[in-house]
Design a protein around this nucleic acid. Structure first.
Lengths: 137, 137
DNA sequence: GTAGATGCAAAGTATTTGCGACAAG
DNA sequence: CTTGTCGCAAATACTTTGCATCTAC
């Protein structure tokens, strides 16, 4: 269940090139949610010959393969994160850009209920909360 | 409470030009959520000399003024809708692109609670449900 | 009359793609 | 070997902007 990205590639028949290996490694080690530029900068430090086109192609491929997931937070560039078992949503600090991951089963349940109410099966959803840190008082 | 866009412009000190009047009218009469291209096509039918740059400038201005709201649904262009009193979220039919608006007070309440739990005041949020229509059985 | 809005075309971003060279299986 | 991938640069898609002209107030 907690396969590495490399293992996932093998099991899904995705050819493992040196570039993909590096991008996978960087993503695995990133606990934030890098955008393509940031990711490109990080992989460039390992192999400076990797082109940004390859980074774009790879994140797209990994997304289609269910290895990464793409977020398009308000007014910014697309950001990526590794897809793990447990689903979670995001709370974004509008001042600092910090991203907090959270899970709320009750909200999940209610979302499904809303979809049902309109005659739909929920296949995906996006929940983003934007907040400002409260003053410690 | 249910001001027209023109009234909102006046009360917020936004200069009312002919172009803005037309864009406001088209948005008011649109029950879908047009993207800039669609909006441009619609206003062009009323005044073919309006440039797309003006449409971009105007939706941005209207958004900043709290007249329109912008949505960036999965993998598509930015879409706009008129901002009314009651807040609502969206359920998107992944097959047809149809957009259903819904309100769920319980989810709203829980979102605020999650933000509080992490020490944040909720200033905004985005909730999108993606579903496929159930077969009538 | 004057500050701000418009149209146009050019510039900016973010992302994708054609193509010849190259590498994984 | 053969198919798919890579790097590069050019292309595309969406959006913004500089500037001279025009318009709302």
């Amino acid at each position: 269940m907690s396969d590495t990205i490399e293992q996932k590639c093998l099991s899904k028949g995705v050819k493992l090139t040196e570039q993909r290996r590096i991008i996978a490694k960087v993503m695995s080690e990133s606990s934030d949610h890098p955008n393509v530029d940031e990711l490109y900068n990080r992989v460039s430090k390992i192999d400076s010959k990797i082109s940004i086109a390859t980074v774009y192609r790879t994140v797209k491929l990994f997304e289609e393969t269910g290895i990464l997931t793409k977020h398009e937070f308000k007014g910014g560039k697309a950001r990526y994160e590794e897809l793990h078992e447990g689903h979670h949503d995001h709370l974004i600090d509008v001042k600092t850009g910090e991203i907090i991951e959270f899970v709320d089963e009750e909200i999940e349940r209610l979302q499904k209920k809303v979809a049902e109410k309109y005659g739909y099966n929920l296949v995906d959803h996006k929940l983003e909360l934007y907040g400002v840190k409260k003053k410690p008082q």
